[in-house]
Design a protein around this nucleic acid. Structure first.
Lengths: 321, 321
DNA sequence: CTGTTAGCGCCTTCAG
DNA sequence: CTGAAGGCGCTAACAG
């Protein structure tokens, strides 16, 4: 008990005992057991971040934002990678619940309430990241996909493109849905309609993107522009285009969501709608930690961060035929 | 107690009680408390990975290897980012010790024994990653910097380069030391010597690389090749070269350690010595987990994985003057 | 087959 | 100012 008081600097302690205790601590290399502490306080000062793809720099940038804010406030972060599998997600949630993490940051693999049911049931504070669950009253932080898509499609239309292939992520993920809807509206406002035959669905991965891109580029007549819904799909589109001898942007314009960190590209090339990934991580974490300290159940907050269209060299006017 | 038996499926239990317990568990949404369990067993099934730069794809690739192996064996991973600060590193080690992680994977910021003293003192199993501590008898996993550097320098010499600027990381980090030594040997074996005036030291970062690169390229006579010790430094070298109108590889060859994941580059450009980052993460974790289960103190192991020279478009013959 | 006791390391509460 | 009792949730060891 006396040791406890010294360590936590609480209550009254004579200078002499304090010194004796400190001496003993140093001698023995004593380290307090945070586990026992947590058991008592029901507080682990640990949060978890569940990601769908730890490979994607977009998500690792988010992770940095999370780590920075968390560690600043004395919280540790457990990272988990679901690979877009809801089985894995459920498994992780279960383990984390057992480990008594104080809160959860989640990029849900599916956009149904089912995914968050167990978390809610246990009353564990959590914030949804990047994706949300329509209709669910929960905290969430994400980029403005709707607006970003609208602007990017408008930009393509302004260049004169009409045959635009849309390479989407999974159809049931909110980012896909919003990025589709934004495009649809831009088309609508221009008196045009989305051609279902030009829409492809697949995973947000290099492989998925490659499959979609080869299909899309094989169509006749060929699209003059590709609107990819994430960076990996765009990367594969560039590859697929190169393989069949198409020049970008002369023969084909390519635009996408999510920039690649400047560190990775010698010469920025892709026209992108950039989301403030780092800030998203920061804000989501700040929100979560705020929920933890002010247990009082405030209204759910939905933070939607603005995106930015960065025009570079992968897009240009429609090729003259 | 009976509940415990049901959950762990241990000891004898009548079918009937088991069912009743299971029913109650389902009804109450009961979740066992891993904290209490850990307190009892002195085992958290959690390991930690301490990285110096979570921004670098080289390290995030390692992290993926770690996560995959760990989660496969039912371990969670806590990620920590030191930003090359030994203060941060010490702080993290301290917190993790308190949290009673079962083991540690560490990319040490410094190569002195000091860094690992507290870990050792507490008897916590750990494995050094990417960097090591010369002379210390500890497990470590890393890429073969010495050999990789030798081969890469040999390659440059073979192209006819003689004025080669070396853009190193921090002078006291083993990766820098080995990558320098390998280069020195290649020069020596070719009857040449390393010119100290051509060697620059700085952090393994974009900023550090930029400072070194601008200095190196301003020298007169200008080097015909740059040997960068990591990907960020190489990236900045490309930028610095572009800014002063140098073409790569026509005017300047650039080679480096650590490839960028294929996903990030539309058209692979850099000539690199690639390290098997993912495998490094895997092997380090496998080794650590092995240490955890076979507590018997085996001899320290030093795993050095081979690197691979990938010649691409950033390097070529010496420009004719 | 089921339940009790005790202790992992911590801290709140209450006595000295 | 210091220490003893008790309990956080769990399970090994031992009754019954």
């Amino acid at each position: 008990m006396t040791v406890s008081r010294v360590i936590n600097d609480s209550g009254y302690i004579s200078q002499e005992t304090r010194e004796r205790v400190e001496q003993a601590i140093a001698e023995l290399g004593y380290i307090p057991n945070a586990l026992a502490r947590s058991l008592r306080f029901k507080q682990t000062r640990t949060i978890a971040l569940i990601l769908t793809d730890i490979t994607n720099p977009y998500f690792t940038t988010i992770a940095r934002g999370v780590e920075d804010v968390a560690s600043e406030q004395g919280f540790s972060v457990i990272f988990c990678n679901t690979d877009e599998s809801d089985r894995e997600e459920a498994e992780y949630v279960n383990v984390l619940l057992q480990k008594q993490v104080d809160g959860l940051l989640l990029v849900p693999t599916s956009s149904t309430e089912e995914a968050i049911a167990p978390i809610r049931e246990q009353g564990l504070p959590f914030v949804l990241l990047d994706r949300y669950i329509p209709g669910a009253l929960v905290d969430s932080v994400r980029g403005d996909s709707l607006q970003g898509a609208y602007r990017m499609m408008q930009y393509l239309l302004g260049l004169g493109h009409r045959r635009i292939a849309v390479l989407s992520g999974p159809a049931d993920v909110t980012t896909s849905i919003d990025r589709m809807e934004g495009a649809r509206r831009a088309l609508y406002d221009a008196g045009l309609a989305l051609d279902p035959a030009q829409v492809y669905y697949g995973p947000f991965s290099l492989e998925g993107g490659y499959v979609m891109a080869t299909q899309a580029l094989a169509a006749d007549p060929r699209p003059t522009a590709v609107y990819a819904m994430n960076n990996f799909i765009a990367m594969s589109t560039l590859r697929a285009a190169r393989e069949i001898g198409l020049r970008v942007p002369e023969d084909l314009s390519v635009v996408t969501f999510d920039d690649l960190p400047a560190a990775f590209v010698a010469e920025p090339f892709l026209t992108v709608t950039e989301q403030p990934a780092y800030e998203m991580g920061q804000q989501a974490t700040a929100l979560l930690l705020d929920r933890l300290s002010n247990k009082g159940s405030a209204e759910p907050v939905e933070i939607i961060l603005p995106t930015q269209l960065i025009v570079r060299k992968s897009s240009g006017p429609v090729p003259a035929t």
